[in-house]
Amino acid sequence: MEVTMTVNGAKVSKDVEPRTLLVHFVRDNLGLTGTNVGCDTSSCGACTVHVNGESVKSCTMLAVQADGQEITTIEGMAQANGEMHPMQKAFQENHGLQCGYCTPGMVMAATSLLKENPHPTEQEVRNGLEGNLCRCTGYHNIVKAVLAAADGMAEV
């Protein structure tokens, strides 16, 4: 089946089996391997991307369902001038990542969260990331990073 969508600003068309999951589509068909797979049950959030600007677990969406939609993956987060997105910077500055496997999904979930709630409390950040698991950081610095990004992005 032919699907066409806009991924990180560029229009792509591919022929896929209907059962192809969006995560496999971006990884295998588009070579955008920044989006990871961490579970079989939609529990971990490693695969989080934006569909029309909202966080979605790309392992729980078919590529055919995304036909005609706007997809952003971690590769599309850097700004046009090549600088990292403020959220990415905040993760580095606050040591919000260790092995980095959960990180792309965390960044995508966190940016979606701030879009809906630009000034979250600590607890709102924690609840907002409830669907993203990290085994390395104990979340302490991830939460700090998101709060810092909220402060920083609010200034802009």
Partner: peptide, 9 residues
């Protein structure tokens, strides 16, 4: 329900 990404879909 679930988490924010689940609630988006």
């Amino acid at each position: 329900v679930g988490d924010p990404s689940v609630r988006h879909r």
